[in-house]
């Protein structure tokens, strides 16, 4: 997902840049009839408007038809394991830190003090697997299926004070647990 977001952003931003560069390159040449240029430009604008609207409807339908947050869908799957995760300045309290690969784990995420962000990183720690906010007085449910064994680090992603960067925990995914 992260790679797709990056590639799509780059392509679209490059497209915007090219359009600007092309117009800017010829902007200092006089002689363009303002009325003709405006009519042509606004024809493109009107077409683009409908393209963007149709794309928006398609994207919204594709990404929201199935509720994107596992655990909060109307028909959420029954988890194999429930782990309560409580954020404290500056540590995570997990009532269980070892699960099996393939199990559907539901994290009940909350906080004992301020807002925290409960983010699970894949073992190589180059990508977030999933996250939820940890808020005092509320419990966010986050369902995750860990396919690969390994140590999944939990980082806090909501700024919570001076040791925010050090607020970490590890979820061990072990076949023999």
């Amino acid at each position: 997902m992260q790679g797709l977001a990056w590639s799509l952003s780059l392509v679209l931003m490059a497209g915007v840049a090219l359009i600007f560069l092309r117009v800017v390159a010829g902007a200092s040449q006089p002689g363009g009839d303002a009325g003709t240029i405006a009519a042509a430009g606004y024809r493109w604008r009107d077409r683009l408007f409908w393209v963007v609207i149709v794309a928006g409807v398609a994207i919204s339908f594709a990404t929201l038809r199935k509720w994107p947050i596992p655990g909060h869908a109307a028909a959420a799957a029954t988890p194999d394991v429930i782990v309560r995760a409580v954020g404290h300045q500056w540590r995570w309290e997990l009532d269980r830190d070892t699960v099996r690969p393939g199990e559907l784990v539901e994290f009940e995420v909350t906080s004992a003090d301020v807002n925290h962000g409960f983010a699970i990183y894949r073992p190589e720690k180059s990508r977030i697997l999933a996250q939820a906010q940890a808020m005092p007085g509320y419990t966010n449910k986050l369902q995750v299926r860990f396919d690969e064994p390994g140590d999944y680090e939990v980082l806090c992603l909501e700024y919570c004070g001076l040791a925010h960067h050090a607020m970490r925990a590890v979820i061990k995914v072990r076949a023999d647990s």
Partner: peptide
């Protein structure tokens, strides 16, 4: 998603139309 539409379609295209071959 919708918030980006006025920016891109009205102000950005308006700017490009305003400067295109204008002798700026």
């Amino acid at each position: 998603y919708c918030s980006g539409i006025p920016v891109l379609l009205v102000t950005a295209i308006g700017t490009l139309v305003n400067i295109h071959r204008s002798g700026i």
